[in-house]
Structure formats: structure tokens, C-alpha cells
């Protein structure tokens, strides 16, 4: 299968972990693959080459989705790809959905698994209602654009000695109708909730906005991203971007620690895809314990400081 992978760079000039998942998937199925990048870093490029793509294409326009989208659209038309894979993210959704129209109508967001079938069909699964149901869709049109949820593929890509990789730059189509006037890189150095491997979330059990710093501190010890229940977002303790759940972000980390969160159905839907769930709550009947891998029934104001101390000993 002819595949194009959208590959991103992390803060250390390395291939982003979520992009490594895409490469591992292509290698597992022995697909021929090209890389589409929008960062020019030489170290990053060398690392991509080490995984054996045929061609690395550089897409201009980032972070302007209109410029990236229209450049990509014009370039894509004569190409022969069956599949275009990217990590599910805002920029990817924006520029790929824009570019998909009108030549490439098949695009699926938030894919958690994909299985190629015999007759040029692919079965893809994606969560619906933030994971309360799973929808299995048949994709039969080529090319199809699939946006994969992070943390779904455990395989690691293998390096291949290939010196035949070529480079091409995609011509830029300017569009003055959209201009980025300012762009402030966030103060957060940690991964976004949707990509995080570890998340520590806090809820109403924290009792007061000022106690959210306990969540921040525990998260920083674990290298985790802090999250929140809807209740404390609505109360204004933290920004909406922290919200995990059906009306916030759907997350799937390896480790999810829920502190003082009782587990409303909307919250459970958003985090049940996590591999290991730890619940800390003083109410033994809290619904969160039904999803928990490990549960501590107790006062979080007693548990968290002890947990912090213990983690500091070993990490």
C-alpha cells in the first residue's frame, strides 16, 4: 500500500513519539511510505531517513492551515497514495480537512485501530460519544485520510539502512485571507493532554482552587500533564483546556490518576481508554472506582503528600 505519513518534530529536534507510532504501523504492514514534514531541522530529517522512507516531502505554510492546506491539495492531486496517516491534532484536522475537499472525501478523525482487509478495504475503529460506544467503519475509497489517536500503537519503529531517500519541497500557495498576527508558545513544556503518557487530574474533592497546586506538583514529579474534571473548570479554578471528558478532551495515557474526582459519566467516557487508572477519593461508592485499576479510599489531603514523598524517593 502506498502511504504518506505526516511526521512531526518534538521539542528536542527528534521525531515526535506520536509520529514514531505511525512509522511503526507502516513498517508492521510493510507499506511503502513517504514522509510529509513541515519542520526543517537537519537532525530531525536524519532521524526520519534512518527509518527508511522513499521520499521526504516538505510542506510549507505551518502554522497557517489555509496555506498548508491549499499547498497540500494542489500537490496531492496527481499522487497515487492509498492512505494518508497523521496524528489526530488540531493543525492536522484543519489543514487536511481543508485540503481533502473536493478530491479526497474520505477522512476519519480519532482512529484507534485500523485493519487492512482483503479487497482494498480498511476497517477502522473510532470512539463515539467520547468512548461510550466504538464505531467500526469500512473505508473503501482511496486515498483515505486517517487521523490516529496518540498512544494506540505499542510497537517501536526499526531503523533501516537506506541511502536512497530523496527530498522534495512542495510549492507554496499563498492565501492572504488568513494571517497569523501573533503566536505565543505556551509556557507548558509538558505534552498536551491528548498526547500525554501520564495524566494527573483533579476534581471537586480538592475543595478550593488554591489546592489545585497539589495536582500540578504531583504531575510535575511524574512528568505528567495536569487535567481536570468539568466541575472545577466550570467553577473557574482552571482553564477549559485542562478539561477531560465528553465536553472536553478524550485522553488515553498509560497512567491516569484521578484525585478527588467522583467520576460523572461524561468524565468516565473521556478517560476510560487509559491503560492504568488510579482513583483517590474519600467516597468508597464513587463511580470512578468502577473504572480504577487501583483505588485508594481516603482523604486526598493525607494521601497526596505521602504519595509525593514516596514517588520522590524512587523517581
Amino acid at each position: 500500500m502506498e502511504t504518506l505519513l505526516v511526521i512531526e518534530k518534538d521539542n528536542q529536534s527528534q521525531v515526535k513519539k506520536t509520529s514514531l507510532e505511525l512509522i511503526a504501523l507502516a513498517q508492521k504492514h510493510s507499506w511503502n511510505w513517504d514522509a510529509l514534514i513541515y519542520d526543517q531541522d537537519p537532525n530531525f530529517k536524519n532521524q526520519i531517513i534512518s527509518f527508511g522512507p522513499r521520499t521526504v516531502f516538505e510542506l510549507p505554510g505551518h502554522p497557517n492551515p489555509l496555506v498548508a492546506g491549499s499547498s497540500f491539495r494542489s500537490w496531492l492531486v496527481p499522487q497515487q497514495y492509498s492512505l494518508i496517516l497523521a496524528t489526530a491534532s488540531n493543525f492536522h484536522r484543519d489543514f487536511l480537512a481543508w485540503a481533502a475537499f473536493p478530491q479526497t472525501p474520505t477522512i476519519v478523525n480519532d482512529v484507534v485501530s485500523l485493519e487492512p482487509q482483503h479487497s482494498s478495504q480498511i476497517l477502522v475503529k473510532k470512539p463515539l460519544f467520547a468512548g461510550k460506544l466504538i464505531g467500526e467503519f469500512r473505508v473503501s475509497q482511496r486515498p483515505a485520510i486517517l487521523l490516529l489517536r496518540p498512544n494506540q500503537i505499542s510497537e517501536k519503529p526499526t531503523t533501516k539502512s537506506s541511502s536512497s531517500t530523496t527530498f522534495q519541497v512542495i510549492p507554496q500557495h499563498n492565501d492572504q485571507r488568513y494571517q497569523v498576527l501573533e503566536r505565543s508558545v505556551g509556557t507548558q513544556t509538558r505534552a498536551d493532554l491528548t498526547e500525554a503518557e501520564r495524566i494527573v487530574s483533579g476534581g471537586r474533592g480538592l475543595k478550593d482552587a488554591s489546592n489545585y497546586q497539589m495536582i500540578e506538583r504531583l504531575a510535575s514529579i511524574l512528568g505528567a500533564t495536569p487535567g481536570a474534571s468539568r466541575a472545577i473548570v466550570d467553577a473557574g479554578w482552571v482553564d477549559h483546556s485542562y478539561q477531560v471528558g465528553q465536553t472536553g478532551k478524550t485522553v488515553a495515557p498509560n497512567l491516569y490518576i484521578a484525585v478527588g474526582i467522583s467520576g460523572a459519566i461524561q468524565h468516565l467516557a473521556g478517560m476510560s481508554g487509559s491503560r492504568v487508572i488510579v482513583a483517590i477519593n474519600n467516597d468508597p461508592n464513587a463511580p470512578i472506582f468502577q473504572k480504577a485499576t487501583y483505588g485508594i479510599v481516603g482523604d486526598l489531603f493525607e494521601v497526596i503528600p505521602k504519595l509525593e514523598a514516596k514517588l520522590k524517593e524512587i523517581l
Binding site: 488540531n90 485571507r177 488568513y178 501573533e182 503566536r183 505556551g186 491528548t194 483546556s241
Partner: peptide, 14 residues
């Protein structure tokens, strides 16, 4: 607009 990782953008759109 607010993006992943706390990135904020100000955009002018026609």
C-alpha cells in the same frame, strides 16, 4: 485561538 500545549494565536481573517 487556543491550541495544544497552551499555544495561543491571534489571527486576522477576511
Amino acid at each position: 485561538r487556543e491550541l495544544e500545549g497552551g499555544v495561543r494565536e491571534k489571527v486576522r481573517v477576511s
